[in-house]
Each structure stands twice: as structure tokens, then as C-alpha cells.
């Protein structure tokens, strides 16, 4: 049986970790490679780097970060942000990333999912979806451009299309839960895991250890992702994993 995964997420801009990092024991808290190595040591099962660089130079720097990280850590990692072509995917995978995350670019051009999956294998393609509840519809809507643009697309039909096109995994962020620390979005995550056979990474809302148990046990998530609570040491990875094990969750 596969273990449930705990995934810290790092936002990187122009080669530096930008938000919410408060590690006293790091020489350079802004160095993504050093932070990644620390999370590896502490028991993270996987890492996600989100590149929020706006410039071509920033993007090029990210490739260097990926290369260095691949040489330093011993767990798989995903790189997302600003990847809009198969050539971008190739560059990042060649530098040593295990998976590629695509979000806005996949909505604008769903063929990118199919092309990436055919070229590199489904296991390399993670489709990231930002979803928000739409009261009028009574279901969730997909947003793009970092959650700024509503698309008019229903989240459940989009994740199914992504799966059919060969996505290996869905990284599902609830915009309603994100930043609240009130827990993951159980109804959204449940709806998506019920609709799909590929793994779902739940994201947004983690504030306490119990929230992770809930999203695994009640919503059927395969993995859970968080940023702030790990960066600020509000939850220690080792405590969290021990807690989940005690509760009978399959954990590495």
C-alpha cells in the first residue's frame, strides 16, 4: 500500500525563497537548495517549488536551482510556475526535477497536458488547479493567473479532462481554504478524489496536525501540501508524521 505523502511547498523568485520562511538554524534562509535539503532531512516525502519569477533571467536562475537541488536531496520534487511549453518542461526535467506542475498554461492550452504526458510520461505531469466555490453554480470554479482570473470552467469537469489527457496527478488548491488555517477543503477534495483515479494532492488551509488526518481519512487525498506552517515551524514534520502513524495512517 502506498504511503500518504506530506509535501512542503517553496515559493521561489529569481532563485530565492520569498515568503514565510523563518528558520533560525539555516545559514541562508533564502537559499532554496539549503531549505530543500533540510526538509529532506526532516522527513518530507516530496517537495514542490513554485517559481514566481516574472523575468526570463529569473526563469533561467530556476533551472540552476533545480540542478543544484537534484544533486543535494534524496526525495522527488516537482517544479511549477511559468511553464507553458514542452521545451520548458524538458529543460526543468533535464536539470533533475522529477515532475512538472502546470496550471494557467494547461487551462489556456489543454493540449500541453497531452503533449507533456506523451513525451515524458504521465508520472511527470502534475496539473495544478486553483478552485473556488461559486455560489450561483453550487459547485467549484477554476481560477487562473495565481487565483486572479475566474475562467467560467467547472473544476470537476476540468480535473476529469486533465486526467483523460494524461495528467499523472492533480495538485488541488482550495482558494476558499487557503490562508485560513481552518483546515483543508474537505468537500472540494472529496469531490475531486471521487471523480478521479489519479492521485490528488490537497492544498490550502492547513493549520493543525488534525487537518492532515482529516484530509487523508475523510477526503481520500493521497498527499497534502502546505507552506507557511512548515516554514514557521508551527508544525514539525516529524511530529506530524508520528501523529498520523499513531492514528493508523500509512506514513513513511
Amino acid at each position: 500500500m502506498l504511503a500518504k505523502r506530506i509535501i512542503p511547498c517553496l515559493d521561489v523568485k529569481d532563485g530565492r525563497v520569498v515568503k514565510g520562511v523563518n528558520f533560525v538554524n539555516l545559514r541562508d534562509a533564502g537559499d532554496p537548495v539549503e531549505l530543500a535539503a533540510l526538509y529532506d532531512l526532516e522527513g518530507a516525502d516530496e517537495l514542490v517549488f513554485l517559481d514566481i519569477s516574472a523575468s526570463a533571467e529569473g526563469r533561467a536562475t530556476m533551472v540552476e536551482v533545480v540542478r543544484k537541488t537534484a544533486g543535494e536531496i534524496s526525495i522527488p520534487f516537482t517544479v511549477g510556475g511559468g511553464i507553458s511549453q514542452v521545451d520548458d518542461m524538458k529543460r526543468i526535467l533535464r536539470a533533475g526535477a522529477d515532475k512538472i506542475g502546470i496550471n494557467t498554461a494547461a487551462v489556456l492550452n489543454p493540449q500541453l497536458i497531452s503533449d507533456g504526458a506523451r513525451r515524458f510520461g504521465s508520472q511527470c505531469i502534475v496539473v495544478a488547479v486553483d478552485a473556488k466555490y461559486n455560489e450561483a453554480w453550487g459547485e467549484w470554479e477554476v481560477y487562473t493567473h495565481g487565483g486572479r482570473k475566474p475562467t467560467g470552467i467547472k473544476a470537476l469537469s476540468w480535473v476529469k479532462e486533465a486526467e483523460e489527457r494524461g495528467a499523472g496527478e492533480i495538485l488541488l488548491t482550495s482558494m476558499d481554504a487557503d490562508g485560513t488555517k481552518d483546515g483543508f477543503d474537505i468537500p472540494l477534495t472529496r469531490a475531486v478524489t471521487d471523480a478521479l483515479t489519479i492521485p490528488v494532492i490537497a492544498s490550502g488551509g492547513a493549520g493543525k496536525k488534525e487537518h492532515f488526518y482529516d484530509v487523508f481519512a475523510e477526503a481520500g487525498a493521497d498527499a497534502a501540501l502546505a507552506a507557511t506552517i512548515f516554514h514557521y515551524k508551527e508544525i514539525a514534520l516529524q511530529d506530524l508524521k508520528q501523529d498520523l502513524k499513531t492514528k493508523g495512517v500509512e506514513i513513511r
Partner: peptide, 10 residues
Amino acid sequence: YKVPHMGWNR
């Protein structure tokens, strides 16, 4: 069951 077999297994 899912194919590929992907993830951490014991």
C-alpha cells in the same frame, strides 16, 4: 488499482 505504481511503498 492505479498504474503506474508511483509513490512511497514499504
